[in-house]
Simulated scan of single mutants.
Amino acid sequence: MFVAGCTQNGQGTAPPGIGGDKERLNIVTTTTMITDLVKEIGGDAVHVDGLMGAGIDPHLYKASAGDVNRMRQADVIIYNGLHLEGKMADIFEEFQGTQVKTVAITEAIDKSILLPTEDEGKLYDPHIWFDIELWKEAALYVRDALSSVDSKNESTYQANTEKYLEKLDDLQGYIKTELAKIPQEKRVLITAHDAFGYFGRAYDFEVLGLQGLSTTTEAGIADMQELADIIAERKIPAIYIESSVPPRSIEALQKAVQARGFDVAIGGELFSDAMGDAGTEEGTYLGMVRHNVDTIVGGLLSE
């Protein structure tokens, strides 16, 4: 565990608070969505150190030795699970049974409502944040996890969660209102990898990804050709790049469709496995989801 390979790090070195702030619960998180969630629930009672920043692909992320040290000094590690952070699985296992509490937010979701992968019954789609109702379950799970470690601030975590759930309910209303503008025949979402399955199920979209659930798999020529045929035949107006996935595969798909005589547009950039830059609207979960919805609506309603 302590000889983890060095690679890109989303946030740089750990801030002084990690391991030294005894007034607040010290929490290390993985993805940007989880970092934002824990800040919303924890508020001023916690210090949150996110390992991954904007544009970082959690499927490919490898923890550095510095990351492991930051986790060793934490009170709690909160991650997604379901193999989203696939290259960190051994590290999380090493911390189980130590004084550092590890929390996988996908454990909040009953397996009966998780989307299975092609290896049905063994692996599940980890991208639960694209269904607001599932994200609410994750929020409640984080609330309970923090309360179990830091009972003196339980009322704070409860109050913050109630406020956050209200924000999520408002966001849910916005999503449904905006997506209702898209007629059924245009409700097809095509992206670089298959990250939007829960979005499709929740909001009645057909979702097609060029790559599989994980970006560790490469799209083959046959996959590209098959998807290009579908787009050209059905005249799907837009396809989308993702902020955490290089755009070359979607650009190649666009050219393949154009070679079939149909001019499909790149409808914009969606945030899938990472949020936008810190300090921007898209750098929050609520803002990221609104951006995605606006971008999807704009692209699929374009002439």
Results as ranks from 00 to 15, higher is better:
278 A>E: 15
270 L>V: 08
42 G>M: 01
125 D>T: 08
285 Y>R: 04
300 L>I: 08
297 V>C: 04
264 V>Q: 06
184 Q>D: 11
234 R>D: 00
149 V>L: 12
31 T>M: 10
198 Y>E: 03
90 D>E: 14
118 E>I: 07
290 R>G: 05
104 A>S: 10
222 A>G: 10
234 R>L: 03
26 N>D: 11
259 A>F: 02
285 Y>F: 12
95 F>P: 04
258 Q>R: 14
85 E>G: 11
203 Y>M: 02
128 I>Y: 02
211 Q>I: 01
216 T>S: 15
213 L>R: 04
52 M>W: 00
184 Q>W: 01
260 R>E: 10
248 R>F: 11
102 T>L: 02
265 A>G: 06
259 A>C: 03
214 S>K: 07
267 G>N: 07
284 T>M: 11
28 V>E: 12
83 H>M: 10
224 M>R: 05
149 V>I: 15
216 T>N: 13
13 T>A: 13
83 H>N: 15
72 R>W: 00
74 A>Y: 03
73 Q>A: 14
100 V>H: 05
109 I>Q: 00
182 I>Q: 05
11 Q>C: 11
302 S>E: 15
51 L>M: 08
179 L>Q: 05
252 A>Y: 08
302 S>R: 11
71 M>H: 02
2 F>C: 07
191 T>F: 09
159 A>E: 14
48 V>I: 02
81 G>W: 03
26 N>C: 03
103 V>Q: 05
132 I>N: 03
169 D>F: 07
21 D>A: 08
16 P>I: 13
195 A>I: 01
215 T>A: 09
77 I>M: 14
127 H>V: 12
269 E>C: 01
132 I>D: 00
181 K>I: 04
113 I>G: 04
238 A>F: 00
99 Q>N: 14
276 G>Q: 10
20 G>Q: 15
226 E>H: 13
116 P>V: 10
206 E>N: 04
8 Q>P: 12
132 I>T: 11
158 Q>C: 13
260 R>N: 09
69 N>H: 08
264 V>I: 06
253 L>E: 13
123 L>K: 13
146 L>W: 00
154 E>P: 04
284 T>K: 04
288 M>V: 09
231 I>D: 00
270 L>K: 02
187 R>N: 09
105 I>K: 03
269 E>M: 12
238 A>S: 15
299 G>Q: 13
133 E>P: 11
178 E>L: 06
203 Y>C: 03
47 H>N: 14
194 D>A: 14
177 T>Y: 12
278 A>H: 07
175 I>P: 13
278 A>Q: 13
129 W>R: 00
198 Y>W: 10
119 D>P: 00
183 P>W: 09
191 T>D: 06
35 T>N: 15
139 A>P: 05
195 A>M: 03
208 L>H: 07
138 A>W: 00
243 S>K: 03
118 E>L: 07
38 V>T: 01
73 Q>K: 13
135 W>P: 12
252 A>E: 09
19 G>E: 01
278 A>Y: 09
50 G>M: 08
273 D>V: 09
240 Y>G: 00
279 G>I: 01
142 V>M: 10
34 I>M: 09
